[in-house]
Design a protein around this nucleic acid. Sequence first.
DNA 1: CGCCTTTGACCCGCGC
DNA 2: GCGCGGGTCAAAGGCG
Length: 323
Amino acid sequence: MDCSSWINTSLDLNINPHHHHHRVHEEVPKKQVESNLFSLGLSMVPLKEEESNTGFLEEELKRVTAENKKLAEMLSVVCENYNTLRNHLMEYMRKNPEKELSPSSKKRKSESSNNNCDPMALASNNGNSESSSTDEESCKKPREEAIKAKTSRVYVRTEASDTSLIVKDGYQWRKYGQKVTRDNPSPRAYFKCSFAPSCPVKKKVQRSVEDQSVLVATYEGEHNHPLPSQMEATSGSNRCMTIGSVPCSASVSSSAPTVTLDLTKSKPNNNNNESKIATKPKANSPEQVPNVLVEQMASSLTKDPNFRAALVAALSGRLMHNN
DNA sequence: CGCCTTTGACCCGCGC
DNA sequence: GCGCGGGTCAAAGGCG
């Protein structure tokens, strides 16, 4: 399967206010925008700013609204693409039942459901996808689900020249191994949460086969302690938490889509502003995702505290820089 | 000195 | 049973 389809889901968000003039932003009334921002828990700038800043803020609001709209549109497109691809995959697997699994079937069971080079499948595999487990898996190893910790994947775009396998997610990690795997020339790094053994979370980081500039971080388990960077952030300093930090607990309830938000490495002077959003509709619904569901997904996005945290960090970082 | 990374050795599940 | 390959261990060294 061609992975360029998911790479193209990168959102060409132009957050630079100097380039917003071409956007369509007159469609949502300002009051609605403000209420939307309030519902997000965002406070852009202290209200005691002088008059000149209000114009800037209005433009900022319009811009955010436009991007919000664009996000929703992209989301629906991604969902449609996902279902199209999924239908194709199902069709293909139905026609070629035994050939399909050849590369990953050699792997361990616990990994085989994860280690798939199809990014759509990757994005959809998050441990809580009980509906995506195949029939044979569920009857072969019923207790696997209980034993196996929640897994989630995070895609982080880095510069191609950056050879480190470091994914900043706000947690502290201790590297305990590195291996070169067969299906990927890039080494895979193994990390444990530095709170181990009290915290059982592990993560694996490896460059994507298709795009060497993309790091794929696979998280296993859930942290049983707060995010260290959040503790710092709430301790008085207005320093932003690491942009792009997406804690593994970002995999949300089974009724909501799993969202991976990647804001890492967004720099003010380049156009590397892509925020890649991988969505996971309910895996066992081959039919097209209705708009209602898309709206539901978008709504769940705004309710997800992790998404909000990342969004707040990204926006505040942008605003501070643009000021 | 303590924590971290590195890296070769070892373990273990799976397929043949 | 054996080999392969992914995952983990643990000794050694680096670094602040």
